[in-house]
Design a protein around this nucleic acid. Sequence first.
DNA 1: CTTTGCCTTTGAGCGCGCTCTAAGGCGTAC
DNA 2: GTACGCCTTAGAGCGCGCTCAAAGGCAAAG
Lengths: 150, 150
Amino acid sequence: MDMTTIELHAPELEPVDPDLLCLLELPDDLPDDLSIAEAAELTGLTAHTLRYYERIGLVDVRRDTAGYRSYNRRAMSRIVFISRLRASGMSIAAISHYLELVLEGDHTEPQRLALMQEHRARIHQQLRDLQLALAVTDYKIAAYGGTAAP
Amino acid sequence: MDMTTIELHAPELEPVDPDLLCLLELPDDLPDDLSIAEAAELTGLTAHTLRYYERIGLVDVRRDTAGYRSYNRRAMSRIVFISRLRASGMSIAAISHYLELVLEGDHTEPQRLALMQEHRARIHQQLRDLQLALAVTDYKIAAYGGTAAP
DNA sequence: CTTTGCCTTTGAGCGCGCTCTAAGGCGTAC
DNA sequence: GTACGCCTTAGAGCGCGCTCAAAGGCAAAG
């Protein structure tokens, strides 16, 4: 194998699981009164994290008669939105700022647009970084005689 | 615009800058006695970080007659390697472990292979996450009437 | 000789994003 | 009734990866 050249292959972009995607606009049959455990299960976050996000004002969650958190579609939608942005490295401060702009009304849309466009650029940079890292790992995997193919 | 469907476009994978790639195997004319400032400049890390990496044993760096750090090709190569793995989210502990395996000798190659294959899987997961995040940002950008095209 | 600027070391400090603890309430099962 | 499990709160703690501070050395410029 030629160790002096490294090919960056476009990481085979498998089609994304539609079940994940549809969480952006949530499934029709999603109950409107999820417990915190259910919300955690669905979003992949921990109950601790969900409470934390509420505490710092990222999301509003109603309480049921027992005082327990009850997550409705609106809350779930926002949490998924937040977790997507978090997964792409947006800081909580930035997300917080964005959500405040939303709260301020329609006239902040240009600022929100700008924020999102900046973040989009950062995501693209991350994609480039990941390609480089993938090149490194594939290089090493090849060097150890393994196969990169999953 | 139809807000109910979201298309995941494969993020246009622009060809990666060859200048970046060739850092894996360093340019032929790279001096063998870079100062810490030069090394920082080249790698995009701070001098603080370079000292830190040395302190925790990720890399060995020689000293010149004045006691100043002098980065040779070997050190630079390792630092670039480390920074690529860091950029893809590998923890310092994991990198440290990997480098210890390297130090232990050839018989650890199977373990290194396994580590790299695991990390490769994580990178692919990150790529999927970034696609989802990109879908979110593009959705919002479209909603605010902006254009996602860079 | 002094200034300037980059370098050295050790050790402490910090920001982020959780993560856990303690003390206690609700509600179903037995 | 009581045991059990999941829930509540406020607040403290933590791990990671830097990042900085303090005190001082080297060496070229003026």
